[in-house]
Structure formats: structure tokens, C-alpha cells
């Protein structure tokens, strides 16, 4: 017994060390830095909650919180709906199915920075292809200020993120769809269920464990997005698209305020935990998965 226990622990050691070194340590260090006034090139001293207190009074920080939540919620909902729709379409029998599925993955495969640069051109204030086309058609009289107007800029970055994130949702849900036994649908059809009823009472419940996982990941990716914003707007115009991640970087690295940057990053953790808990407890409820109601 003794040696078995010891052996078990021994085999777990590499994994434990790996987790400790590459996961716990950086996270712990980040949390610690958030409580210090560390700057680049100088180790800090413990300052308690001062960073958080300063952030609390910082309107740019709150703006970035608002932007991040808006960005995450809007982009995640759109990604989920469009991704699910795309998955359902791809699940039908289409000619050239394999090729279409591969093509759908493209936005996800292309490095963000590369696609963001392409979008940067598409949204350019003066040279936008969209503005140009609409101008040529005579539908608009001056170019659309995609990235200059705060609300336009927000919508623009959200749509770009959606474009990029759909394949992940769609392909994963497609995999889930294919595990649903056709006999269930056949039985339901025989019982006279409409296609909406089949979707609502068979597909959706069967898919919901996967939806929970996919959306948890999707929310996490969106919440911590950085590259897209950094390339497209740097958080501008007038900080309207600054996310917590970009603000954290701007303050920590170019600004040199490592402690404050870390504090912003740590401030993201509660939101992320909430998102995980929501999907874990909210979407993985057994009863709902089995087609029952919430009551």
C-alpha cells in the first residue's frame, strides 16, 4: 500500500512541477506584482491595495471594463448564434463538404495579426474598400469613419472578432452534432415533431455540454483578446476600444508600470471566474440537458 501511494505520487510529480512552474508561478507572480509598485527596471515594494484604489478612481480603467464587457458579451452572443447556424448548415449533406469545412476554418487558422492587418485596410478611413464601393454606388457621400467614431469603432472591432471566432464555434459544434444519433431524430419525426421541436428538444439538449465548453473557451478568448485591438486601433479612438488586456499592456510595458498593469490583469480574473462558473453551473445542468424545463 505504502509503496503504491508513493509510486503514484512520484508519477504525478512531473505534471505537478509543470503546473507549478508554468501556471501557478506566473499567476502567483502576477497577483503579487499587482500589490506592489514594481516598475520596469526596479523591483517594487508592497503597497497593499494602492494600485486597485488608483484604478478605482481611474475613468480610463472603468471605460476599459465597460468596453471589455460589451466586447465579450456582444461578440460571444453573435459568435454563438452564427456559429451554431453555420454548424447546422454544415451538418446537412452538401456537395464538396470536406472542402467547405476546411475553408470555414480559415479565419481561425490565419494569424490574428495578419487578418487584423487585412481588416485595417478594409476599415481605413480614407482607403476602405467598403467606403469606396458604397461611394461608387452612390449610396454614401463621404467615407465611413469606421475606426474614428467611438461607436463605429466598437462595432467594427466586435464584428472582426466575430468573423475570427465563428469557425472555432462552428467546427466544434459540428463535431458535437455528428455524435447525435440519427435515430433520435427519426423517432421524433415519426412522432410528428416539427423541425423546430426537433432542434429545441433533441439537438440543443444533446449539444449543451459541448456548448458549455465551447462558449466558456470562446468567452475566455474574447475577454482576453489583445492582438486584434492592438493592430486595429491601439485602443483608440479616444480609448473607446481599449480592453482591459490592451490597457494592461499599455500601462505595464510601454508605460513601465508593471505593478499597475498586473493589477489590471488581475482585475480580469473575477470576470473570467464568473464566466466559467456561469457556464459550468448554468449550462451544464442535467435536467435541462435531458430536455426538462428549469422548474
Amino acid at each position: 500500500m505504502q509503496s503504491k501511494l508513493f509510486l503514484g505520487l512520484l508519477f504525478m510529480l512531473p505534471a505537478a512541477i509543470f503546473l507549478l512552474v508554468f501556471l501557478s508561478y506566473p499567476l502567483g507572480l502576477g497577483v503579487w506584482l499587482g500589490f506592489t509598485d514594481t516598475r520596469i527596471g526596479r523591483t517594487g515594494v508592497f503597497v497593499g491595495l494602492e494600485n486597485y484604489q488608483l484604478l478605482w478612481e481611474d475613468s480610463i480603467f472603468w471605460l476599459s471594463v465597460f468596453n471589455t464587457i460589451l466586447y465579450t458579451v456582444a461578440a460571444s452572443i453573435l459568435k454563438f448564434m452564427l456559429g451554431l447556424w453555420l454548424a447546422l448548415l454544415l451538418n446537412e449533406h452538401l456537395p464538396l463538404k470536406a472542402i467547405i469545412r476546411a475553408v470555414v476554418l480559415l479565419p481561425w487558422v490565419v494569424p490574428t495579426v495578419l487578418s487584423a492587418i487585412a481588416f485595417w485596410w478594409i476599415y481605413d478611413t480614407q482607403f476602405s474598400i467598403i467606403s469606396w464601393a458604397l461611394l461608387e454606388l452612390g449610396w454614401i457621400s463621404s467615407p465611413i469613419n469606421f475606426l474614428g467614431d467611438p461607436n463605429n469603432a466598437r462595432a467594427t472591432v466586435i464584428l472582426t472578432n466575430v468573423w475570427r471566432g465563428i469557425p472555432f464555434v462552428a467546427i466544434t459544434l459540428l463535431a458535437g452534432l455528428q455524435t447525435i444519433s440519427p435515430s433520435l431524430h427519426e423517432a421524433a419525426t415519426l412522432d410528428g415533431a416539427t423541425s423546430w421541436q426537433r432542434f429545441r428538444f433533441i439537438t440543443l439538449p444533446m449539444l449543451s455540454p459541448l456548448i458549455a465548453v465551447v462558449m466558456t473557451f470562446s468567452v475566455l478568448f474574447t475577454f482576453t483578446d489583445f492582438q486584434l485591438i492592438y493592430v486595429l486601433t491601439r485602443g483608440g479612438p479616444l480609448n473607446a476600444t481599449h480592453l482591459m488586456a490592451t490597457l494592461s499592456f499599455q500601462r505595464a510595458i510601454p508605460g513601465g508600470q508593471l505593478g499597475e498593469g498586473a493589477a489590471i490583469a488581475v482585475a480580469m480574473v473575477p470576470f473570467l471566474l464568473a464566466a466559467i462558473l456561469f457556464s459550468y453551473f448554468g449550462l451544464q445542468r442535467r435536467r435541462w440537458q435531458q430536455g426538462g424545463s428549469d422548474a
Binding site: 478611413t125 480614407q126 469613419n145 475606426l147 474614428g148 486601433t233 483608440g236
Partner: peptide, 15 residues
């Protein structure tokens, strides 16, 4: 010209 509030370093060169 409209849109200068979205300009990053390269935009004015292009325009």
C-alpha cells in the same frame, strides 16, 4: 480630412 482621430503612425503617409 475626416477620420484623423483613428490615424496611427502610418495613416498620414498613405493619405
Amino acid at each position: 480630412i475626416p477620420g484623423t482621430e483613428s490615424w496611427l503612425d502610418i495613416n498620414n503617409n498613405r493619405v
